[in-house]
């Protein structure tokens, strides 16, 4: 299979994997991104837990909303840090000089961001289950976490790349990102809530379909527009 610029699919995937591997290596050596995301997530969950003082019934109803709000805010920390790595020493220019399809750079970064969000989720969910007294070990709920995180990473990586050019990028990213996240956020909260309440799949399918559609459309936008976004 040939892609843009006549590269084979294997070469394209090798580039995606090289970027992903590089981001993981950078994080392994610096341990800044995951640490910031984890500490922030823990604090927000604790604050919500003590501030809301909910009874057991209300807790199970609002827990999905609290969880996704926490993920959304922690995710922006991760996205900012992920692109700051490219800004230091102008490393992004090094990527743009390479004879690779630039959309592969986008996918490499998006998969790395997805990986970091999932690591945070894996570490946080057990604590969250204890504090909010909800059983989160439901395969459907975990699927929603995966789909929602992918949608978030796909659009977040694209917008973080846009924001990196700006002087006040830490402020700009949430301003650009959150309005576009509303569909995935609302749908993920609804689907998570339905799964946690044990509703039948018939009620949940529309939300899942929307998450899947979002998870396909956003990467397609990244594939098409990343090259234009990184052009000077």
């Amino acid at each position: 299979m040939r892609l843009k610029r006549g590269l084979s699919l294997a070469q394209y995937l090798a580039t995606v994997f090289a970027i992903l591997r590089k981001d993981l290596a950078v994080e392994w050596r610096s341990r800044q991104l995951l640490a910031a995301m984890l500490i922030f997530t823990l604090l927000v969950i604790l604050i919500f837990n003590f501030a809301l003082e909910l009874d057991a019934r209300v807790r199970s109803e609002v827990s999905a909303g609290v969880l996704w709000a926490t993920f959304a805010f922690a995710g922006t920390l991760g996205l900012n840090r992920s692109m700051a790595v490219e800004k230091e020493g102008k490393a992004l220019d090094g990527l743009l000089l390479a004879p690779v399809d630039r959309s592969a750079v986008y996918f490499g970064k998006a998969f790395a961001n997805l990986f970091f969000m999932l690591v945070v989720a894996v570490l946080i969910l057990p604590m969250y289950a204890i504090l909010y007294n909800v059983n989160l070990w439901h395969s459907g709920f975990l699927l929603v976490v995966l789909l929602g995180s992918w949608g978030y990473s796909a659009i977040g990586t694209l917008l973080a790349t846009m924001a990196i050019q700006a002087r006040s990028r830490e402020l700009l990213l949430p301003v650009l990102l959150f309005p576009l996240l509303i569909p995935v956020f609302v749908t993920a909260v609804r689907a998570s809530s339905f799964f946690l309440q044990g509703l039948e799949l018939t009620y949940i399918w529309p939300s899942l379909n929307l998450l899947i559609a979002y998870g396909l459309i956003m990467p397609a936008l990244g594939y098409m527009f990343f090259d234009f976004i990184v052009e000077e």
Partner: peptide, 18 residues
């Protein structure tokens, strides 16, 4: 155009892959 947190060898190995 290098990654400050990576070693010299890791930086070159990464670009060699690209």
């Amino acid at each position: 155009l290098l990654y400050e947190d990576l070693s010299a060898e890791q930086n070159l190995a990464f670009y060699a892959r690209l």
